[in-house]
Write a protein that binds this DNA or RNA. Structure first.
Lengths: 262, 262
DNA sequence: AATATATTTCCATATTGTGGCAATAAAGCC
DNA sequence: GGCTTTATTGCCACAATATGGAAATATATT
């Protein structure tokens, strides 16, 4: 019945189809910006075409996904929006001001990212004021942990065991990203660099020609694992500026903590 | 293997488990306010205890639900919030002002409701300014179509065939609501009354001692089926006031349409 | 302490989900 | 326009997965 490999067949606890369905929804949230076609979803989620199709179809009928007939691709649907309203615990309010301040001071697009399993989600996006703006992500978009500046900053806060677990569990999840920069060794090297420097740098890993600088937020009041990052057009900034951005983000995070925490 | 009835066994299209999982999430969103324990979820969704438990567990591990150890009940989880961010198409902005205006003028808690399959979702809630406030719902909460004023108003806009389909498909969905007021005949009678009057009245169907008056919004610019309703403590208002509230809501909706539509 | 109620674990069973293959449809490309 | 390529949908035999009953355990109530 099944010829493809499954990391841990017994770990689904008699709910394989449900796990897969959730995986498919997450995948769509991840790649919908660049077009979540059946084939791409199947590729990214590691499921067969048939299985992906059946799951996509049922989820669309349940309105958890929406199908764009013209573009032939799937999007996160209205039921997801509605269920989102029913979930409490919005961490964004406490950090929106800080993100806006960083966007103002750096003039760059600034993001608040949160860990979500083996992925990072974009919670807030504030545009900068430069003429050329790098907008590699959208609110709600998901990235594999390690891809992108904020996402990488969060990954680097985990201990080595967790890092390896996360990367292993991502499977084919990173294959749709630019270049070969999403290979395991590359990620591990970048994690190491991030720890040494205290801030993360990501160049062309989410979108080509875009550079990002990120920094994790040490868990303080909230339980979520968060990070803030800025994005710029790669040509437009000097390599040496990265450190300054890192320092600026760190200062803003410190201020937020001391303002609320006490 | 299965002894319980299933309305339409073939309609799942080889995705029974997924349909059930989505149903379980919706159910939790519906009853989480009054405590979504395993037993209650099983009851409302019409699934066996074992199946409910397995689905609830896997969804919790996937973070689509969250389990409250102390209260022993399930809530809509953080992944739902995150996925909600990825779904575009927020209809709320166009109606928030109108809802606020109605809340100000009536001094009552005012809701914007939207149809979602066989249910209605609360999109916006604005508190009134009375000393005793009826707050029968929360944002994101789901009700079976026909239960509650806004929900009933939407149901009454459907043609008779659809009304019967919706009610039939709700299954045990209405059983957890107060009294025997959720019986099929009762609903049909109220639908008829709503059509005659042009506005809906719901008394003690969502929460005991609470009365609601609602009116559907004729689809205009948006594709969603919407309604606006107000809620009051039943003792605090005269029976005759309902009509006035209906007229007031109708006027506000008209103003919104003419302001944006044109 | 005793009872009632709710939750979790276990397991044999067949229903359900699976994925290969083929048919069909749509989009590029000469 | 015909031809190639790519993407989507339908079909079906098979067994792995999901199912629900029942028993065991935990928790609340009297």
């Amino acid at each position: 019945m099944r010829s493809q490999i499954n990391i841990d067949p017994a770990a689904t606890g008699g709910a394989q189809a449900i796990r897969r369905a959730v995986e498919v929804v997450r995948t769509v949230a991840q790649i919908q910006r660049s077009g979540a076609s059946l084939t791409r979803v199947a590729l990214a989620s590691g499921l067969s075409i048939s299985t992906s199709h059946r799951i996509l179809r049922s989820l669309t009928e349940e309105r958890l996904l929406r199908y764009d007939d013209i573009g032939k691709c799937y999007h996160v649907g209205p039921l997801a929006f509605e269920l989102g309203l029913a979930a409490e615990g919005d961490v964004r309010t406490g950090w929106r001001d800080t993100v806006e301040r960083i966007a103002r001071e750096t003039r760059l697009t600034t993001y608040l990212m949160a860990r979500s399993g083996n992925e990072a989600v974009c919670l807030v996006c504030v545009q900068g004021s430069t003429a050329l703006r790098a907008m590699p992500m959208e609110v709600g978009q998901r990235l594999p942990l390690g891809i992108g500046a904020g996402s990488l900053a969060i990954l680097a806060t985990l201990d080595d065991d967790d890092v390896h677990h996360v990367i292993a569990a991502q499977g084919a999840r990173r294959d749709l990203f630019p270049g070969s920069s999403a290979k395991v060794e590359q990620i591990l090297k970048r994690v190491e660099l991030t720890r040494q420097r205290g801030y993360s740098v990501s160049c062309g890993t989410v979108a080509l020609g875009v550079i990002g600088v990120g920094m994790a937020i040490a868990p303080h009041r909230e339980l979520s694992q968060l990070a803030i990052s800025v994005s710029a057009v790669a040509d437009s900034i000097e390599r040496s500026e990265a450190q300054a951005f890192g320092a600026l983000i760190a200062a803003a995070i410190r201020d937020n903590h001391s303002a609320r925490g006490q």
